[in-house]
């Protein structure tokens, strides 16, 4: 596949650029190697894992909700993860990171299940109601989180979780993101089944798919990827929306064939935006969430505008 090869080649260039982009310059001595090993390489890996994971989570969510305009940050998943995080921080301050991760994942799971239960009741001929419902729902969860954080003086933490950035990534402080990588890898095994689930419940049942199980697995993968990303680097918007939509335009939605391209493109997009985030106000940094907020919103509007006239939704 040419597209896949082109993205992979671009990714190699981006990785090289990422390793050499930053305030400290990389030198061929022990100090230079140390900087790469402790900061640049982990940061690059974190961007790749988060990008690939969020793109994969987005496309799974779009299949489960049977709507191409949803992704974890617009359907309450990320907001629910944030709420879980605030609650566990209040209930058990100073709890271990894995416990926070668990609480965020559980909250994301419940929040996303709630979203899917809601959108099942919406009329299928009104596809835009689904993302609207997601935005309102996410807004309510986000508002509850902000209120709790405000009351208990946690707003500065909230700011870190809600605005994704990779400047804090160091060796030893990002490794949970490999769980997002593992969840994305598992999605490859189930790619065909997620596509069939996207045909709808009746068509899936006709094909002998264990629909409930596939829905539950998809929910779990989306929740793990989102929660791990929010807790480790913060919320990164639009990746899960823009990447699958562009891939769908070019190559369709048969995930058995397209999921590698989705993952590679997501990784490339987030890494490219992180490099931009390091360079735009050099030597200062902008959060990657902000860069993607602007770029992603623009891309999304373009996608909405260029939507083919019929048969979509």
């Amino acid at each position: 596949m040419r597209a896949r090869a082109a993205i992979a080649a671009g990714l190699v260039v981006l990785i090289a650029a990422s390793l050499f982009t930053g305030v400290g310059s990389i030198t061929a001595d022990a100090e230079g190697l140390w900087l790469v090993a402790v900061s640049r390489a982990p940061r690059t890996a974190a961007a790749l894992l988060a990008g690939a994971g969020l793109a994969v989570a987005g496309v799974i969510m779009q299949m489960l909700a049977r709507n191409r305009f949803v992704e974890p940050t617009t359907a309450g998943t990320a907001q629910a993860a944030g709420l879980g995080l605030v609650v566990v921080t209040l209930v058990a301050p100073g709890s271990a990171l894995w416990l926070k991760m668990l609480a965020a994942t559980a909250a994301a799971l419940v929040g996303t299940a709630g979203f899917l239960a809601m959108v099942r009741r919406l009329p299928p001929q009104e596809p835009l109601l689904v993302p609207l419902t997601g935005l309102v729902y996410g807004g309510i969860l986000g508002a509850a989180t902000t209120f709790l954080a405000f009351e208990r003086d946690l707003l500065q933490f909230l700011d870190i979780w809600m605005n994704g950035e990779f400047s804090g990534v160091l060796l030893g402080r990002y490794e949970f993101l490999w769980a997002a990588g593992a969840a994305s890898a598992l999605a490859f095994v189930y790619a065909g089944r997620f596509t069939i689930a996207g045909l709808g419940e009746d068509a899936s049942l006709n094909l002998g798919l264990r629909y409930g199980q596939v829905m539950a697995l998809g929910l779990a993968l989306v929740s793990v990827i989102t929660a791990v990303t929010v807790v480790t680097v913060g919320m990164i918007p639009f990746v899960g929306l823009v990447v699958p939509n562009i891939v769908s335009r070019l190559r369709g939605d048969n995930l058995s064939a397209t999921l590698p391209l989705v993952a590679l493109s997501g990784a490339a997009l987030v890494l490219a935006c992180d490099i931009l985030a390091r360079l735009l106000r050099y030597p200062y940094e902008i959060p990657v969430g902000t860069v993607l907020g602007v770029l992603g919103a623009g891309l999304f509007l373009w996608l909405l505008h260029g939507r083919p006239a019929h048969g979509r939704g």
């Binding site: 299949m63 049977r66 191409r68 006709n206 002998g208 369709g252 939605d253 048969n254």
Partner: peptide
């Protein structure tokens, strides 16, 4: 095999992909 009326397919699949899913079982 059962086909219900007014089945709508949201994923962007090719005709061959869709028919190929018939072999999934």
């Amino acid at each position: 095999a059962i086909l219900r009326q007014n089945t709508t397919i949201t994923p962007r699949l090719t005709v061959a992909d869709l028919v190929g899913f018939g072999r999934y079982p």
